[in-house]
Amino acid sequence: MSSFTDPRCRGITGPVLTVVAAGTALVLLASCGDGGRGTRDEGVASIATPSTTVAKTADPDAGHVRIRLDDNQRDVNRLWDAWTDCLHEHGVPADRKPAPDSPALKACESKYPLQPVEMDPAKNPRYSDGVRAMVKCMNGHGIKSVVSEGNWALVSGDSLNLPDFDKYKVQCQIKSFTDNG
């Protein structure tokens, strides 16, 4: 079984994020306006786009960039590239990780892409159901997947090169983490 450490593959292995207070419902409702489409290429609206007008005290994730369930890998890569570009602009060499207490991390904190709310086990009480549904959906499309350490994972990294991998990953994420009831 493969284990991915590249942050661009976090949607494959599963996220671990922080708990949000009850005010999250208001943040999510406030963020639904235009669906946060911006320059994204395709998909359906998602409740995962955070509101940038809500104070950080109401939601510690407010103002952060958030990956959405309907983002394809190109969209996800663009978000990660913006974060790494910011780090480089603040003096972190391309071949080095930033120090945990570096000014670059602080300066680029809001550009660090957070996983979709629906794929956060601390925020989604049905996350485990979604993981099982995701594995079933991916396997149904011939992409060998398993539940691994409470998250979903690919049996082989070679699956990333399968035709329509990205299309099925997005379809399965939307179906599994919104329709798992």
Rank of each mutant, 00 (worst) to 15 (best):
D95K: 05
P121E: 15
D6A: 15
E89F: 04
K169V: 09
S110H: 07
H141C: 04
R132T: 13
L28N: 01
T52L: 14
P116V: 09
D158V: 12
D6P: 07
N151F: 05
N139S: 10
R40Q: 12
T13G: 14
D179P: 04
T57E: 14
C86S: 06
R10G: 12
T53P: 02
H141Q: 07
Q73D: 01
M1V: 14
W152V: 04
N124C: 05
D179S: 12
V147D: 04
S102I: 02
Q115I: 09
N72T: 08
V19M: 14
D6L: 13
Y168N: 02
D129N: 14
G157H: 13
I174Q: 09
R68D: 05
A55L: 10
G157A: 14
S176W: 04
D70Y: 13
S102T: 06
L114S: 02
L28G: 03
C86D: 14
A62R: 06
C9V: 10
D164T: 02
C108A: 03
V20G: 01
R66N: 08
G23D: 10
S102V: 07
G130E: 08
P98R: 07
R96Y: 04
R74Y: 11
H90S: 08
G14P: 14
P121A: 03
G11S: 07
L162T: 00
G43Y: 05
V76E: 08
T53H: 03
G14H: 10
M134R: 04
T84H: 14
K167A: 09
K56Q: 13
L26K: 00
S3R: 11
D71E: 12
F177I: 08
H141A: 13
E42S: 13
V65Y: 08
S159K: 04
W83L: 02
D75Y: 00
N124D: 10
D81M: 01
G14C: 07
R126E: 12
R66H: 11
D158M: 12
C108V: 00
A48L: 03
P163R: 01
V131G: 09
S51T: 05
L29G: 06
L29H: 01
C137I: 01
N161F: 03
K167F: 13
S145D: 07
D158Q: 14
C32W: 05
D101G: 04
P100H: 08
M1D: 15
E89V: 11
R8V: 13
A99F: 05
T49C: 09
W80V: 14
V147N: 05
L79G: 00
D101F: 02
A107D: 03
T84K: 10
